[in-house]
Nucleic acid binder design. Structure first.
Lengths: 158, 158
DNA sequence: TTACACTATATGCCGTGGCATCTACATCGG
DNA sequence: CCGATGTAGATGCCACGGCATATAGTGTAA
């Protein structure tokens, strides 16, 4: 009687624990490598990469992408700006907000860090989990993410 | 030529992004509900549940479970102790460390919060993703977690 | 144009984690 | 038993996010 069409109810707590623990350890491991080689951490790399790939974004766009608060995002941009990797440019169509852009240094940094990031990620999971099961996981997480984003689940207040 | 035996190389960066974003949003959503109903956040719930299920644990055991530093864990235990949910008991076999135990209040709290946690988690993912794909995801993440833990990947220094 | 409601984001205070450091205790070789 | 080395965890300083609040700037309607 194993494996009904709906699947025997999954241990959601266990699943969640595994999800969080994988995320924590991968994030930590990537932080170590990125800090060592480029002096940034994963969250900074992700922000810079997002800005490279989405020119003209505003603070609110970053916040929505990463599901962190607007305030936190603003401070995070302050720090990137202080390092000279990002600039706030006046937004001609709304003076309340700024358009964010990478500097040349910022661009060089992301491009360099991307190699490190990808390589380390492959070491961490590419070599270990491969093939069909991994595809399923990737696709399922992608769907779950879409649903969570569609329903605005887990967006911080500020 | 789709679907070779190793699977066409997965976009690891995309997978990682989905993993992190799902984790963030689920964690935030659970935080909101737990804070509202029990005045704790997910990390505290997880710590209390671990202590309930692993009596006699030490600070280092918590740190290893959650892949956070010993120092951070010590401070986290301070806060739980200050709330009256946990006590440090002298460890008869090693006076450098303490054995951690839940108080009665702590036990009542975890048991109550567990219902909220499980229920909210089911709302968030149980209803959305069900059946075989989800099983595969759960099992694969569980394996990935085991490998990361076996190799001590992503353990903070302090 | 003036008032009012709304929106984008900046800022302050707090909780929490990383990392470095310090201390007490444990352990091992002699 | 003694000194050297190792280990558990406590603590200080910093980075960073949540949340509440403050400040501009925008849009709308009278």
């Amino acid at each position: 009687m194993a494996s009904t069409s709906a699947g025997d109810a999954i241990d959601l707590s266990g699943f969640f624990a595994d999800l969080v623990r994988c995320e924590t350890r991968l994030y930590n491991a990537l932080n170590d490598r990125l800090r060592e080689r480029h002096g940034i951490v994963t969250s900074q790399f992700e922000a810079l990469r997002y800005l490279r790939d989405h020119p003209g974004s505003r603070v609110a766009d970053l916040a929505a992408e990463f599901a962190i608060g607007i305030g936190a995002t603003s401070k995070s941009v302050d720090r990137l700006e202080k390092q000279g990797w990002v600039v706030r440019q006046p937004n001609p169509s709304d003076r309340r907000s700024s358009l964010l852009a990478l500097t040349n240094d910022g661009l060089k940094l992301v491009d360099a860090a991307e190699g490190t990031f990808t390589e380390r990620l492959a070491e961490l999971i590419g070599d270990t989990l491969d093939g069909p099961p991994m595809s399923t996981v990737a696709q399922t997480l992608s769907e779950l993410r879409s649903v969570l984003e569609r329903d605005q689940i887990g967006m911080p207040t500020g």
